[in-house]
Amino acid sequence: MATVKTYDPELLRAERRKRENIRRLKGLGLHALLITILGVMLYPVIWMVLSALRPETEIFGDMGFIPTNWTLENFVRGWQLYGDLTFTQFYVNSFIICALAIIGNLLACSMAAYAFARLEFRGKWWLFAIMLGTMMLPIHVQLIPQYIFFLNIGWVNTILPLVVPKFLAHDAFFIFLMVQFMRSLPNELEQAAIVDGASYWQRYWRIILPLSMPALATTAVFTFINTYNDFFSQLIYLTDTDRMTVPVALRLFLDPSGGSSSFGGLFAMVLVSIGPVLGFFLASQRLLTKGIATQGFK
């Protein structure tokens, strides 16, 4: 005779409650751990923010985490670097370079990528390999010849060495990134355009480019971040103080050679300078995530 197994509903409910409690406890533990890690990671940033808001003399003197005296003086003094030079000028300089670099990279890299991804021509794979090979050249190898070249054509102390190469598909990484993306687009779309009599330019401009928006956004964001943070090229090519950019100007608060440093101004201006990068990233976060996810960079 078969036995029928019976379940006590009370016992079942208790078991469920127990499982639920364990799950909640695990979730709580995990969140506590993540919050702790986040705190550790954010501590230097929070310290910097609070240091920018305390009087300069208290930055290294006051051991407390929360300032005893609050001030915006560091922002005022930091913005006015010295003489007539203010960060307004440096931001304008930085933004002009960033805007042009983004436009240049988006146009030139996407065109080069289209050629590599969708067109067939003799020597394509050799050229692609050479293009990838340029990514392996360290900047130090190119520095002096590039400088002398730009000097000889009269471009030093102008923004041209920083932006013109971008219009010539100079960043191999972004070409590679877009090639990968464009290869994943269905051929049928382009074939349909060919049937309609579309030229190469029309296929690139009307079909491929609009579909490559995530890759373009990724390129734009990384170009902005790289250009905005670029210190060395801007240091050597923009020598006149009126043409200085934000990262170069930020270094002028410190004097490791023995003079006085201005940490208050530095922290305040670093805080302000984070704003554009953060804003640009947040504004394009959705496209950026999509771009990275669809290009196999997971």
Binding site: Y82, G83, T239, L252, L254, D255, G259, S260, S261, S262
Partner: peptide
């Protein structure tokens, strides 16, 4: 003429 020097905010000023 171009004049170059090194220094922090105080020396620059």
């Amino acid at each position: 003429i171009r004049f170059s020097w090194w220094g922090g905010q105080v020396r620059n000023d």
